[in-house]
Amino acid sequence: MAVTPNSGTRNTAPRSLPDFSHERAAWAAGEVPVAGADEVGRGPWAGPVVACAVVLDPARVPEGLDDSKRLSAAQREKLFEIICATAEVSLAFAPPARIDGHNIRQATLWALARAVAGLPRAPRLVLVDGNDAPPVACTARTVIGGDGLVASIAAASIVAKVTRDRLMASLGAAHPGYGFERHMGYGTPEHQQALAQLGTCRHHRTSFAPIRARLAAAE
């Protein structure tokens, strides 16, 4: 019997992990070095967007790289240390003031471009997660779902995620009561309750509708 796309069958084949094939193809074409870039933190109501660019050493590609969202915190922390010890890494931060002043898309692209520009060696090619290329001084190639396909993008996603989580934990200690160390600035019920009790702080994104509405109600 023929199986139609809506038949309810499920693909049980194991999902493949990101690999270095995109980078090897770029190397073969003379696009050396090649970097992967990704960001974390577009959706939260508070805290910065953190962007990262990584140039992996072909001889020391860490095992177990994957989209940071698919890894446990312990796995991310372990890979973070390995990546930082074996690869070229650059980070950039778009704070709430830039997000509010330019919009989240422009702030994110700005941070990605800054991360790429901060690499020790200027890349010839940057592989970027998603479908929006930042304004960089080299060729930029977007890869939808790249953090689950391309090793260097996955590495960038891990470093960005661990860095932002650590930063939000420090903001939680500096601003007790908001729970930043748990919800990382996302609009969870805990965060909403904290806003109702404490109001906003300087790390909130005032251009985001829920924060803007709360500020307007307080006037």
Rank of each mutant, 00 (worst) to 15 (best):
A169N: 08
A169E: 15
T163Y: 07
G177V: 09
S170I: 03
H175D: 03
A169L: 06
I153W: 13
G177P: 14
A155D: 08
D165G: 08
E181Q: 11
A155V: 07
M184N: 03
S157N: 12
L171R: 09
H183N: 01
A151L: 06
S170L: 10
G185L: 02
A155H: 06
S152Y: 11
K161R: 15
V150M: 10
A155K: 13
A154D: 13
V162K: 13
A173Q: 08
T163W: 07
A155E: 12
A169G: 13
A156S: 11
E181T: 10
G172D: 00
R166W: 12
A156N: 14
S170W: 03
A155P: 05
D165L: 04
E181N: 04
L171Y: 14
V162A: 04
V159H: 14
D165N: 07
A156G: 10
G187I: 01
S170D: 15
G185W: 09
I158C: 09
L171W: 15
M184E: 00
A160E: 15
M168K: 14
V162P: 15
I158A: 05
V159D: 00
R166E: 11
G187D: 01
S152Q: 12
S152P: 10
T163S: 15
G187P: 03
R166V: 14
A156F: 07
I153G: 11
A156V: 06
I153L: 10
S157H: 11
A173K: 15
M184R: 04
A151V: 08
I153Y: 10
V150P: 09
R182S: 07
V162G: 08
D165E: 06
A151F: 05
S157L: 02
A156K: 14
A156R: 12
I158M: 13
Y178I: 01
F180Q: 03
R182A: 09
H183I: 02
M168I: 05
D165K: 06
R164Q: 05
S157T: 11
G177M: 06
A173N: 12
A155L: 01
Y178V: 12
